[in-house]
Amino acid sequence: MDTQTVKYLANLGFLSFDENELEKLAEEMNGIIESVSFVKDYNAEYDPLNDNLGAHLDDLREDKAEPDYPTDKLMRNAVHSENCFVVPKVME
């Protein structure tokens, strides 16, 4: 793993690091990867059906609407305006 890859991962995770941090992280990532990468050689394939918990339609939630949750409670931990969450403009 090089700093380019760490930067790519950081972009996907919406994190940013300076060059020094990227170098240090690349080293740490390599260390972690080295310690776990032997799993690649394990002789088995994942079978999604093996994780089947046997749920059927009746186990799912009934379609019923409940009374509205108070909007002021929803907003109180956020920067809000006109009952909306405020977000700086999105760059296209």
């Binding site: 939630r61 019923k64 609407a65 409940e66 509205d68 949750y69 909007t71 929803l74 907003m75 006109e82 009952n83 909306c84 969450f85």
Partner: peptide
């Protein structure tokens, strides 16, 4: 179980 009803205040049908 939030309502899917159209309309209502902004973020009114949000938990």
């Amino acid at each position: 179980s939030c309502s899917t009803e159209f309309g209502g205040g902004k973020n009114a049908h949000c938990c």
